[in-house]
Simulated assay, not measured.
Amino acid sequence: MSIEGYGVTTLDEFVGRELGVSDWVVIDQARIDAFAECTGDHQWIHVNVERAKRESPYGGTIAHGYLTLSLLASLSIEIGLIPADAKAGLNYGLDKVRFMTPVKTGVRVRSRVVLESIERKGGGRVILKTGNELQIEGEDKPALVAQTLVMLVT
């Protein structure tokens, strides 16, 4: 998706504005299991469906917090965070992350992104700070809120 008028030279005009909302993404058990395999985090509350049904306070398995956090990158790209006239956009880090609500298996999530600030670093580099809210369909509280940093290479 592209954001009308959004580019490296017009970033200042977008500070404080919502850049967009991603499409919904299903958090199914296959995705959770693949994340567990990739990271080595096989805690039962994420991967043992039968035990989680019996013992979890959520009535079943839940997604890893870091799985939900990792979705912000692809969902931000979907929204159009990296301007088309930038050569690259690189993960530069996080300023603040709070996991607010567990993400139960089978639900859908989406990301809402606001451009909070920009910092021109010289040498064709610009740091974008975004506010991200990963929303859970049908829930009042988000799964997480996070400030992410992206370095644009122009």
Score class of each variant (00 low, 15 high):
Ala73Ile: 12
Ala73Pro: 13
Ser74Thr: 10
Leu75Cys: 10
Leu75Asn: 00
Ser76Tyr: 00
Ile77Ser: 15
Ile79Met: 08
Ile79Gly: 05
Ile79Pro: 09
Ile79Val: 15
Gly80Leu: 06
Gly80Thr: 03
Leu81Ala: 03
Leu81Met: 09
Leu81Gln: 04
Leu81Asp: 00
Leu81Phe: 08
Ile82Gln: 00
Ile82Thr: 04
Asp85Ser: 02
Asp85Pro: 10
Ala86Trp: 06
Ala86Gln: 04
Ala88Phe: 09
Ala88Asp: 03
Ala88Cys: 06
Gly89Asp: 01
Tyr92Trp: 04
Asp95Met: 03
Asp95Gln: 11
Asp95Glu: 12
Lys96Met: 14
Val97Arg: 01
Val97Glu: 04
Arg98Gln: 09
Phe99His: 09
Met100Leu: 13
Thr101Gly: 09
Thr101Ser: 06
Thr101Phe: 01
Thr101Gln: 06
Pro102Tyr: 00
Pro102His: 01
Val103Thr: 11
Lys104His: 10
Lys104Met: 11
Gly106Cys: 11
Gly106Val: 05
Arg108Ile: 09
Arg108Leu: 11
Arg108Lys: 15
Val109Asp: 02
Val109Gly: 04
Ser111Phe: 07
Arg112Thr: 11
Arg112His: 10
Arg112Asp: 01
Val113Gly: 11
Val114Met: 03
Leu115Asn: 07
Glu116Trp: 07
Ser117Ile: 05
Ser117Ala: 15
Ser117Thr: 01
Ile118Met: 08
Ile118Phe: 10
Glu119Asp: 15
Glu119Phe: 09
Lys121Ala: 12
Lys121Pro: 13
Gly122His: 02
Gly123Arg: 03
Arg125Ala: 15
Ile127Asp: 06
Ile127Asn: 13
Leu128His: 01
Leu128Asn: 00
Thr130Cys: 10
Thr130Asn: 06
Gly131Cys: 09
Asn132Ser: 11
Asn132Val: 11
Asn132Asp: 12
Glu133Tyr: 08
Leu134Val: 15
Gln135Trp: 13
Ile136Asn: 03
Glu137Asn: 04
Gly138Phe: 04
Gly138Thr: 00
